[in-house]
Nucleic acid binder design. Structure first.
Lengths: 232, 232
DNA sequence: TCGGTTGTTTGCGCCAGCGCAAACAACGGC
DNA sequence: GCCGTTGTTTGCGCTGGCGCAAACAACCGA
């Protein structure tokens, strides 16, 4: 598949690369379309590649030995993912599933040492990504330790919407299909509780729901919910 | 302060380094004693250094805007910490406090680019550390989403004991002072609940408690608690 | 040795949120 | 257009674990 250079070159990951650097990086990559719901790699599998999401949204899922699922995060356009190689890990710690039809760049892990040596800013970008993820995951632990379910869900919605929101006439909409169950698995609760709270918020005019759809109509209202501890 | 080379060279972080490599790394480091309860760096502060713990135990703490504290992890002998520079972060995401008197090596962040280039295996070790932390933190999120408090505490105790345990005549003892409150802050619960469960386990003969002390007398018994979902 | 501080234990009541269940609604394949 | 599937809503009862409170125990500095 041919690559649209102009579109790719503008991504933050490639910031500061000259033409030759960009060429060096892209020369080892392969671009491909990934249909919705297909799994790009599986938790525990031998890590053979790393990826950059050019278009679409990807769900990163961890499954416990007992079969419980948790959504670790969503990957958005322009983000690296599956970069086990940069962490010195030999297996993927989670599964990656396309939430919508996606376009991804794929590098073989074998290209990593060379890329790291010849295009350090690209490697640095990967390390920074990992650092950000660690920081976000730790923030999530804090949230789960100290906040009520209501606040966690409000936070999660605001986060998704700010990262993967699409402006519509009625507000900001999450631009991939997401179920109540998905939101529950992001926040450590049940779809019932999520459904109840979304309904309540809909009554208050903060959000508007639909099947696999959430539109935030009043971010400020949600923020009040997210911040206020112990309301009534 | 002079460095005891023979002791240091054996650490996993320095595995695979020849004498000159080790020299290059150590030349930029400074060794120092850190008394119990002193803070080596503070959450949100400008990151100027990174560290290696030579001896002792360090508590890594995150504080929420509302003042809630959470213990992110304990650092043990031989581990790198405060490596914000390797993640491209300019501030420390948490505070580090000596749980006991410690000995640490300190590098100025300025030394990082040079070390990374000249001693890649040392840098790789740092990246691997970060990868492991990310993995562990995500495991913690899973645990908090899917497990009961009782199981989380049992897991936490087993983890601490396996990483920082010291064999005694009656069992394996956590070899730094740890309060019920600390355990609560690691597992997202309250000191009351921790105290109740430890008391119960003491009755069952799994652990033995004391002021700022926990001894696991029957790891297998604890493991049963940790694994079994929904017991009675 | 004493008094203050810090950590631990335990009782009691309550409620946020879960589990279960059932009805409903939207979508997609045929 | 019909029907099975998948997702959503809502009611109801229950309980794990928190909040509050009070007593106690160990340690530490003077």
């Amino acid at each position: 598949m041919t690559l649209d250079r102009s579109l790719i070159a503008g991504l933050p990951v490639f910031a500061g690369l000259d033409i030759s650097g960009l060429d060096a990086v892209l020369a080892r990559a392969r671009s491909s379309r990934v249909p919705k719901d297909s799994e790009m790699f599986s938790q525990g599998a031998e890590a053979g590649s790393f990826f950059l999401l050019l278009d679409g949204h990807i769900r990163v899922v961890r499954t416990s030995p007992e079969g419980h699922q948790v959504i670790a995060r969503y990957i958005n356009e322009g983000e690296l993912f599956g970069i086990a190689v940069a962490m010195g890990r030999s297996t993927y710690p989670a599964s990656a599933i396309a939430a919508v039809d996606c376009v991804v760049l794929t590098w073989p892990n074998a290209a990593w040492p060379d890329l790291q040596a010849r295009v350090p800013s690209f490697a640095a970008s990967a390390y920074k990504t990992i650092g950000t993820r660690l920081q976000e995951t730790q923030a999530q632990v804090m949230e789960m330790s100290t906040q009520q379910v209501e606040q966690r869900i409000a936070h999660a919605l605001l986060r998704i919407v700010s990262q993967s929101g699409r402006k519509t006439e009625h507000g900001i909409e999450i631009d991939f299909p997401i179920t109540r169950q998905d939101i529950a698995e992001m926040t450590g609760t049940t779809l019932h509780t999520v459904s109840r709270l979304l309904s309540a918020w809909e009554d208050e005019g903060f959000v508007k729901g639909g099947r696999q759809r959430v539109v935030v109509t009043d971010p400020h209202g949600l923020m009040v919910v997210a911040e206020n501890r112990r309301r009534k």
